[in-house]
Design a binder for these strands. Structure first.
Lengths: 225, 225
DNA sequence: CTTAAAAGTTAAGCAATCTTAACAATAAAG
DNA sequence: CTTTATTGTTAAGATTGCTTAACTTTTAAG
């Protein structure tokens, strides 16, 4: 059965997994949810029984497709509510989060779609976080390459080059990169000290400067059209 | 502690008490809430322990001030949400009730006041039911005297006379009744067969016709100003 | 007034979500 | 590679809100 508690667990598990790419620990969840670690283990068993998560004793939690879907629905509701409360009802920035935290669990999909429509199908909430659409798809979001440590190993598309200086342009054209190029991020050094990317078969080292100028968005998966 | 379940119990207990003026029975609640009678007894003990209701074994439930206050808050939220969903979000008449049933328990007073303001402090919901204001006061509602069986013994004010025929006007003036008069309802006969009212010290018998033409609203309580 | 039907209560138990305390596994440090 | 600190699990128990079944009180009918 779907409960408020379970929705909250899944929401946090999902978000954390997106952030780290690693299994979520008991301690992290106990902290975030303000409950004992025993409570986490307990719930983990129940969520696993419903195939919402994969849970391996002593080795953390991962979401399964069903759990992911539920989590995304809750996140969608949360973000739409935040926007709605802020923009339509003129609530304060500071109040909006807690309010949405409550409403997100008692809002039907139908109502949520009404609100979505009312707001003009927004893609981002007041914090700039992406709002998944009614099918659970997140809008592609472009970020500075220099800030993308978490996403190493994945394919990205260059969507903006935030620097028009000759040096930068020249360097990029020299290594065969232009707007729309698809590259693979191999390594992002912390503190904006550059990056390692792969363009086709060639591996290139990028300075911090340039990594900060390049805005990249996840490349489409699946077959090309 | 305040829970969704308790709010629902109180809401129904309060409404039923307003309607009948009598203690609420276990069977009635079990029916309304779709739970066993044992569950009602159980909850009654818990609500009584919190002084939300007065509960006497085998003799039903009455609300206490604290419970009344809570119930009115929930009713206010319910009705405001219904209006909001219908008018602002264009939801269907049929969907609005169930949706409000959920939202009413997860909406802060602050948010509710925003919605109230957004709607222009409405006094009635889409069903015509009165919406209590933020202090829990219901707007005075005028009703045909012929339909007010429930309210015998109380003081009312004549707020509308929905019949301009000479006979009616003459009769009323003969017994000393005009717009604004305060009378006490002594007896309302069912099937619109008339009423017995007291105007000052005099007792008058009213025909069904006239009882249907007189719109009355609860008289103000407390000291006159 | 008695008695059967209706209404209400109690007892035992279950599921969900917690808690604390004791114990077990893993990871980190030497 | 052992030892210890950290992390995680289990067991037992509490609370909320239910259920069913057995029992008690009240009400209504004769």
């Amino acid at each position: 059965m779907k409960t408020i508690s379970k929705e909250n667990y899944l929401k946090i598990i999902f978000s954390r997994e997106e952030e780290t790419g690693k299994p979520i620990t008991t301690t992290y969840l106990a902290d975030k949810l303000n409950v004992s670690k025993a409570a986490i283990t307990d719930m983990a068993r129940r969520l696993a029984a419903e195939e919402l998560i994969a849970y391996e004793r002593y080795h953390g939690i991962r979401t399964l497709p069903k759990g992911k879907k539920l989590a995304v629905e809750v996140i969608r509701k949360h973000r739409l509510w935040e926007l709605f409360l802020l923009e339509v009802l003129n609530m304060n920035w500071s109040e909006v989060h807690d309010e949405a935290e409550l409403l997100e669990h008692t809002t039907s999909d139908k109502l949520m779609n009404r609100i979505d429509k009312f707001l003009g199908h927004p893609k981002f909430d007041p914090h700039g976080d992406p709002i998944p659409n009614r099918n659970g798809k997140f809008p592609k979001t472009a970020k500075r390459m220099s800030l993308l440590e978490s996403a190493e190993g994945k394919k990205y598309k260059i969507v903006r080059v935030n620097d028009a200086s000759k040096d930068v342009i020249d360097f990029l054209s020299k290594i065969g990169i232009e707007l729309g190029s698809e590259i693979t991020v191999k390594k992002i050094l912390p503190k904006n000290e550059g990056a390692l990317i792969k363009n086709g078969r060639r591996l290139h080292s990028i300075s911090g400067n340039i990594a900060a100028a390049l805005f990249i968005a996840p490349a489409e998966k699946g077959r090309k059209r």
